[in-house]
């Protein structure tokens, strides 16, 4: 369990080893962040090595309040982070906006 190389996706919060992000992308966000089509910088930019609070999410995520609260209830099972330090770079955010994807920073700066 090499937490050193693990990173959390800044969009969905999924925690994976860096290599996996590079190789396979993010199972939730691949369609919008395209980790695979871009070079490794995309992974660097859109994932964060600094996160806190581990959440293990199973299959029955729809029933979970925790998942709903963290807005990970529609994502694949996995380990997610509660708080992720860092924000997506602006160009990615505008990209996401074009794709109608709502980005909510997970570093605690989101207000609602």
């Amino acid at each position: 369990m090499s937490s050193r190389t693990e990173r959390a996706c800044m969009l969905c919060g999924l925690i994976q080893p860096y290599k996996k992000f590079v190789d396979a992308g993010c199972p939730n966000c691949e369609s919008v962040l395209h980790f695979q089509d871009n070079d490794d910088n995309q992974v660097q930019d859109c994932t964060s090595p600094s996160f806190e609070g581990l959440v293990a999410l199973g299959n029955d995520n729809k029933k979970s309040w925790v998942a709903r609260w963290l807005r990970i209830d529609s994502f694949v099972p996995g380990i997610y982070a509660v708080k992720i330090n860092g924000k997506l770079p602006p160009h990615v955010i505008s990209d996401l906006t074009e794709q109608n994807v709502a980005y909510r920073p997970r570093d605690g700066s989101a207000e609602d």
Binding site: S31, F75, N100
Partner: peptide
């Protein structure tokens, strides 16, 4: 897009305020 479609919050689906959660 559709194939590994992003299932998180989209503007289309409408964002839910955390208060409602």
């Amino acid at each position: 897009k559709t194939h590994t479609v992003y299932r998180g919050d989209t503007n289309a689906s409408g964002t839910v305020s955390q208060k409602l959660l």
